[in-house]
Amino acid sequence: MALRIPKAELPLEVRENMVQQLGAVPENVEVTWHSPKVAQDDMEFGGEVGAWDAADASLKSFAQMAVPALVG
């Protein structure tokens, strides 16, 4: 599948850090880098979401009630 937006050239230090951390530079970063502020905010948000490790304890009870309702 061809990209509609051409990839932007990342600064060398950013490219090296990505390769070191991820093994490669993700295509979405190369495409969003046309607006570096947007790309950096997107990476920061992704990092914060990746740090989530559990759902809120109050949601657990809702899930436990929903399963029997779905199963019947």
Rank of each mutant, 00 (worst) to 15 (best):
M1D: 06
M1K: 08
M1C: 08
A2C: 03
A2N: 06
L3N: 07
R4F: 05
I5M: 02
I5Y: 01
P6R: 12
P6F: 01
P6H: 03
K7R: 15
K7E: 03
K7S: 02
A8D: 02
E9C: 05
E9I: 06
E9R: 11
L10F: 03
L10Q: 04
L10D: 03
L10M: 05
P11L: 05
L12G: 03
E13H: 13
E13Y: 07
V14I: 06
V14H: 03
R15H: 06
R15V: 01
R15M: 03
R15L: 02
E16S: 05
E16P: 00
N17A: 09
M18E: 04
M18L: 13
V19E: 13
Q20M: 06
Q20E: 10
Q20Y: 03
Q20I: 01
Q21K: 13
Q21C: 04
Q21D: 09
L22V: 04
L22G: 00
L22F: 06
G23E: 05
G23I: 02
G23Y: 05
G23P: 03
A24D: 08
A24N: 05
V25L: 04
V25P: 02
V25G: 02
P26S: 04
E27S: 08
E27P: 00
E27A: 13
N28Y: 11
V29H: 02
V29W: 05
E30V: 01
V31R: 01
V31P: 00
T32E: 10
T32N: 10
W33P: 03
W33F: 12
W33K: 04
W33T: 04
W33A: 07
H34D: 01
H34P: 00
H34S: 09
H34I: 05
P36V: 09
P36L: 09
K37V: 11
K37F: 12
K37R: 11
V38N: 07
V38F: 14
A39Y: 07
A39S: 15
Q40V: 10
Q40W: 06
Q40A: 14
Q40K: 11
D41V: 10
D41M: 10
D42H: 09
D42L: 14
D42V: 08
M43Y: 06
E44Q: 08
F45N: 07
F45Q: 10
G46V: 01
G46N: 11
G47I: 02
G47M: 05
G47P: 00
E48H: 08
E48Q: 09
V49F: 14
V49W: 11
A51R: 15
A51N: 10
A51C: 04
W52H: 08
W52V: 14
W52E: 12
D53P: 01
D53A: 06
D53N: 13
A54D: 12
A54S: 15
A55R: 08
D56Q: 10
D56V: 06
A57M: 07
A57R: 15
S58P: 00
S58R: 11
L59E: 12
L59D: 12
K60S: 14
S61K: 15
S61N: 08
S61M: 10
S61A: 14
F62S: 14
F62V: 09
A63S: 07
Q64V: 13
Q64N: 05
M65V: 05
M65R: 15
A66H: 07
A66I: 10
A66S: 07
V67I: 15
V67L: 14
P68D: 12
A69Y: 13
L70W: 11
L70M: 15
L70V: 12
L70H: 15
V71C: 00
V71Y: 04
V71E: 13
G72A: 09
G72M: 09
G72E: 14
